[in-house]
Simulated scan of single mutants.
Amino acid sequence: MFKSQHPLIINLILQLFILQFSPPVSAIRKDVSLQHKHYCRTTVQGRFFLTDDNGYVCDAFSVDPLSRCCPGKGDKFSCHGCNLVSQCCNSYEFCVSCCLNPDMTRKELALKVKIAKPVTAGKFDFRCSTFSEDFSFDLSLTGNYGSVFDFCAGRCRHNSGSVVHENAYLSEFHHCFSLSSNFSGSSSTQLEARLAGINIIIGRQGESCDSVCKSNGQSCVPNKLALLNQCEVIQKYMTCKGACLSSIGADQPAEVVDDAPRYLNPGACLYTKTESMLSCDGSHSHTRRLCPCA
């Protein structure tokens, strides 16, 4: 009987020996719960929508209760309902989202903007989830914007420059984030003012501006075509992969579709030096028009 148990006793002694002299094993995982967690700042002006500092727009019910961030679905830096020339929008939340796009707002310039006047800043509300509280800041105080989000949330609010007689808006695009010409180096201030209230729409291939505007419940504004008939304006709305070229045709300003014959310069944007040819009813089977509608 002792012989039959001998191997078991030796095995038990070996296991005790291993446990006695084996190095200790840590049961604690390194870096657990030490990863950086981003808590979003959000706008709180709207009743139904808000914009987080990632550039997403969502309804209040879909916000993550811990991070206060939008789900990250849909377009980031959405410019829905915005006039990209004037950089004015008909919605506060989409104004902030569009403004947060680095291609729209240069950080080094935005942080130089003074917030001393309520006309350009106003009162700014945001939620800071780190403390699970809402804060309200009066940006009429002296200083500069502390971040691009501060700049966008402040600039997109209503200001006295967007109303007439303090009770009527100049146009439905009264949420604006554009930098002044002193900061942007642009001389397009007059152009932006002349396009205020104009909805600029890219048409489908072969479609006239009359048809484009009508399908959106509006009418083409012929005297605004000349304002769009400039490369710097066309390139704000279209990719212009084949550069911007001078052309002759009633369908300009426009962009040549990618599958057009090679001799038509596929992907190129077109403008005309003969502005008398500009027409709302002009069209071409291989171009998509840039249309001013109202």
Results as ranks from 00 to 15, higher is better:
Cys213Lys: 06
Ile10Leu: 14
Leu34Ser: 15
Gly249Gln: 09
Thr189Leu: 08
Gly185Phe: 08
Ser162Phe: 09
Gly217Trp: 11
Arg155Asp: 02
Leu14Trp: 05
Asp210Phe: 02
Phe173His: 13
Ser186Glu: 11
Leu100His: 01
Leu19Thr: 05
Asn265Thr: 14
Phe135Cys: 09
Ser187Leu: 08
Leu179Met: 14
Ser33Tyr: 12
Lys224Asn: 08
Pro71Arg: 07
Ser132Glu: 10
Thr51Met: 12
Ile200Cys: 06
Asn54His: 12
Cys79Trp: 00
Ser22Trp: 07
Gln205Gly: 03
Pro7Tyr: 01
Ser184Cys: 11
Val233Arg: 00
Ser181Phe: 01
Leu225Pro: 01
Cys89Asn: 06
Leu34Ala: 12
Pro65Trp: 07
Leu111Pro: 07
Tyr39Arg: 10
Cys69Arg: 03
Gln230Tyr: 10
Asn265Ser: 15
Cys293Gly: 03
Ser211Val: 09
Lys112Phe: 03
Ile201Val: 15
Phe77Lys: 03
Asn54Gln: 13
Ser178Asn: 13
Gln205Met: 13
Phe177His: 12
Cys99Gly: 03
Lys236Gln: 15
Pro261Leu: 11
Leu225Thr: 04
Gln20Trp: 04
Phe177Trp: 15
Ser283Met: 10
Gln235His: 08
Val257Asn: 01
Gly197Cys: 08
Leu278Met: 03
Gly197His: 06
Pro266Trp: 04
Pro266Arg: 06
Cys291Phe: 00
Asn83Tyr: 08
Ala110Gln: 04
Gln235Thr: 15
Gly197Leu: 05
Asn83Ile: 11
His38Pro: 00
Leu14Arg: 09
Ala121Leu: 02
Ser162Lys: 05
Ser279His: 04
Ser129Glu: 13
Cys128Phe: 13
Glu93Gln: 12
Ser246Val: 14
Gln35Trp: 03
Phe77Val: 04
Pro102Phe: 02
Phe48Asp: 01
Arg68Cys: 01
Cys291Thr: 07
Ala243Met: 11
Leu179Cys: 10
Ser285Arg: 14
Ile248Tyr: 09
